[in-house]
């Protein structure tokens, strides 16, 4: 790998610039769709159909003062917002984005792709817990505790569901999983995909599992004390994680960038946008669950179902695909 292409990967695609553009897009997309479902107009004045509004918003946030509370641990408080987006952005090198780069393989084409993805996604919540811990604020701390409880329980079904394609195709290489997938395998993997998406809502703290930053209860959870640049970085990390987790879903279950007639990045993008649409639609129509209800749902329904799903995958591999 030459230095030039390395810099291109880091700063342009699928690195910084791409992630920034994605953040602008998904922020705008969520606001506009939600506004439509709310019977509102949403962003309207800046740019065509208000599309520049989110860009302005993010740059406005960057110009704001970044306040460190007196009682907070200044090092922990300020270093987490730098680490979090980096960790959140790391999994992009494991995902095969487009046929144009690296012969359609991921930048880091490894036999342990699924494992790497699962680990890097799993680290994120602990960093967010540390933001709550470092703020030394009651609401932030409660938010941090909640995120820990939610992650510990939601990661079990999430990982079990993410394992199902690896089990079906007998490989953990994301490129091979993607290349081997057909209409039939997507159908076999559908229960796994549904479990993955439900658990994904929990991992990403999206409604109905937006318990850690429930603003009616604990103000803004672990975000409460953050402002300005730090807040922007944390939000950037959140949107990056949404991209990574939904792109992983598309690669694992729905054939990645492969599509009808031709293979392209835009197929992947379309599928990711559809998942984002599902997230927004759920958000617009469902209230938040209580922490104990979420735990109960997760451990007495979702996790057992995820285990059953593995049984189904093995059955399908043996008898339907005839491995």
């Amino acid at each position: 790998m030459s230095v030039g292409s390395m810099l291109f990967y880091i700063f342009v695609f699928p690195g910084l610039l791409f992630l920034l553009l994605w953040t602008f897009f998904v922020f705008y997309f969520a606001r506009k769709t939600l506004a439509y479902l709310h019977k509102r107009v949403g962003p309207h004045y800046n740019g065509p159909a208000g599309s520049l509004q989110t860009v302005w918003d993010i740059f406005k946030l960057l110009t704001k003062e970044s306040i460190t509370p007196k009682s907070a641990d200044p090092y922990l408080f300020n270093i987490i917002p730098i680490i979090t987006p980096i960790i959140a952005a790391l999994p992009v090198i494991l995902i095969p984005w487009t046929p144009l780069i690296n012969d359609g393989r991921a930048i880091l084409d490894t036999e342990y792709g699924v494992l790497g993805l699962v680990v890097l996604i799993g680290v994120e919540p602990f960093l967010l817990f540390l933001t709550g811990f470092g703020s030394n604020n009651k609401y932030s701390f409660l938010g941090g505790m909640r995120i820990l409880a939610q992650m510990l329980s939601m990661e079990a079904p999430f990982f079990l569901a993410a394992l199902s394609p690896a089990l079906l195709f007998g490989t953990m290489n994301l490129y091979e999983i993607m290349q081997n997938s057909t209409w039939l395998t997507s159908l076999i993997l559908l229960p796994g995909a549904i479990i993955y998406i439900i658990a994904m809502l929990g991992i990403l703290e999206q409604p109905p599992f937006n318990i850690p930053d429930a603003e009616q209860e604990i103000v803004y959870g672990f975000y409460t004390e953050y402002a300005g640049t730090n807040y922007t970085l944390l939000k950037f990390a959140e949107f990056t994680e949404i991209l990574v987790v939904s792109a992983a879903a598309v690669v694992l279950f729905f054939g990645g960038y492969r599509g009808l007639f031709f293979d392209s990045f835009w197929w992947l993008f379309l599928k990711v946008a559809l998942i984002a649409l599902i997230i927004v639609a759920i958000r617009a129509s469902n209230p938040r669950l209580r922490l104990d209800q979420m735990l109960k749902f997760c451990w007495s329904w979702l996790t057992p179902l995820a285990v059953l799903n593995l049984v189904w995958i093995i059955f399908a591999r043996l008898y339907l695909l005839g491995a």
């Binding site: 709310h38 019977k39 409604p207 937006n210 429930a214 009616q216 469902n286 209230p287 938040r288």
Partner: peptide
């Protein structure tokens, strides 16, 4: 009532 559970859609519809 729904706003207290983090769902604003209903409030918007009612305000309409």
């Amino acid at each position: 009532f729904f706003g207290t559970m983090g769902l604003q859609t209903f409030l918007m519809w009612c305000l309409d």
